[in-house]
Design a protein around this nucleic acid. Structure first.
Lengths: 187, 187
DNA sequence: TTCATCCTACCTATCAGTTGGTAGGTCGAT
DNA sequence: ATCGACCTACCAACTGATAGGTAGGATGAA
């Protein structure tokens, strides 16, 4: 068992943050979901900022691992790229949530610095992955693939936001399809 | 003078909401900025939800008026379309704010219904305008221009979010340029 | 083997600060 | 005398955070 609560707290905080952001996180609700008292969370995380940073860090670590697995298990980078938008679709599917870091990007100015840092890292990892895959898939040079990668990531973030505010996953799919039709994303 | 405070409250609330969202709005800070006491705001707006809805409504009304003026004063729809991303740039320029409705789209699930309604209207107006202009500028049919309009709007929202989280207006410009290069937006 | 010590993982109780909101009063202009 | 615009003085609910305590297991020396 040892420190199982820590994992439970991280998991619950992730779900809440995906739906209500960093400011939507509160120790009492979080504790209730985990089955402990609010004060006990401080045993695992010294402050809300630490908890937020830990959640965001875990989030990009998992994302990075998933993206690397995707590339490692496939011989076709183009197929990986096609799957990429789907990774952001999952959150929308279950409970109209969205990518933790896309959400927190909106709150960015009000975030504690440690949390900001993890959010930036999430973006950087995604842009780097996209850029790498774009070089393999398209005729884009490394210098041109990075701006393109950033554009794709930003556009996907926007698609999540729009689909979420209509509580309509199919709108997300339609937007991604439009991005392909407009050749922002390779078809 | 009459009810000048009402306008001052709306103006201050707009700026705050663009920087910190609906949940970031609070009556005490708002009142202090306007120069009255918190309780006096209730004389003009019966609740926070009403204030939020009024701010969002005023926001899309101003946007709609501006967009129509843009079209009316120009004989070239293509020039209007080129100017469109610039309307979202202004908020980023001054104080790293963003479009009120793009921000509130993130908080959407926690918004009171009257506020949600105004946010949807803002999106609808923008998509309708873009769609109309796209028909005039490109060879897209009305049926194909609306999905494209939605894609453009979503992508611009994402660009705002990304630029804001890096506090870098030039990143916004670069993203818009990438959208044009990828022919999501007409060049 | 026993006992003192320490640690982990929680608890209760409480804090100060902030939130949206209300009750009831003041005051000047019409 | 009425009324719009504003005030003071509250309130309950909720926020992140702290102080101090407890039960139970591990550790290590006698």
């Amino acid at each position: 068992m040892s420190s199982n609560s820590r994992e439970a707290i991280l998991a619950a905080a992730k779900l809440t943050a995906q739906a209500h952001g960093y400011s939507g996180l509160n120790f009492r609700d979080l504790a209730a979901e985990v089955g402990i008292k609010a004060a006990s969370i401080y045993h695992h995380f010294p402050s809300k900022a630490d908890l937020g940073a830990a959640v965001a860090r875990r989030y990009w670590e998992d994302s990075a691992a998933y993206l690397e697995t995707l590339l490692a298990e496939s011989t076709d980078p183009a197929a990986c790229l096609r799957q990429y938008p789907g990774t952001f679709r999952k959150a929308l599917e279950s409970g109209n949530r969205m990518c933790l870091c896309s959400f927190m990007a909106a709150e960015y100015d009000d975030l504690p610095e440690p949390v900001k840092k993890e959010i930036r890292t999430f973006t950087d990892i995604n842009v780097a992955w996209l850029s790498k895959v774009l070089v393999a898939v398209t005729a884009l040079s490394p210098e041109k693939s990075e701006p393109r990668a950033r554009a794709i990531f930003a556009a996907i973030t926007g698609a999540q936001l729009m689909a979420r505010s209509r509580a309509d996953v199919s709108l997300y799919d339609a937007l991604i399809e439009s991005y392909r039709a407009a050749s922002l994303l390779p078809a």
